[in-house]
Amino acid sequence: MKADQKELLRKIRSTSDDRKQVIEMIAKNTELGNAIRSYVLSNSGSSDDATMVFHDSIIDFIKKVFTDHSFELSSTVDSYIFGIAKNKWYGILKSRKFKSDSLDEVLVREGEETIFANINQKEKSAILKNVLQRLSGNCREVLMYWAGGYSMEEIAIILNYKSAGMARKKKCLCMKELVDWLEEHPHLKNELRK
């Protein structure tokens, strides 16, 4: 793996600012964006579908690198993300075809499916925003790295805590706040599992 690719993976696993740089760099990569757009458009997709697939592929790539600490690129970032996009679009097409075949109302069903998909994402975002409003400073980051499998030593370094013990105490505090929120919203437990 090339040095610049290693640096890119390091940044994704580092601070939010470093990660933001990588996300912006990938999102502004017109060559990659156009390749995904061409692929989606030439396979029965719309311009909106192409944007959605491009963005979701970036998210999947970032999540993969963030949570799989031993992950290394065997190809370029572009070809890896393009591979994700192809699989993602194939899955969407398959799902749409299955629904249209089984219901025999292609246009109506497809439209409804898109709307439902959007509503779910919007609802999910709204719920997450609600959670984040409830959490105190830095809890989002601490819990995010904790869920991503980072050790307390790593979290302390990335988030500038004096020690792993301090990071652990912060994690416990944040977890209590999250439990409080969950107890107040029992009906949402399942919603976030979608």
């Binding site: 990660r19 999102a27 963005h55 209590k176 439990v179 969950l182």
Partner: peptide, 26 residues
């Protein structure tokens, strides 16, 4: 006890924070 019972849900919610962070940038 609730934290232990809902451990996976807490982790799932927390992992969604990354999704939200990337979507915000995009």
């Amino acid at each position: 006890e609730s934290a232990v019972e809902n451990y996976n849900t807490l982790k799932l919610i927390s992992s969604e924070f990354l999704d939200e962070e990337v979507r915000n940038v995009l």
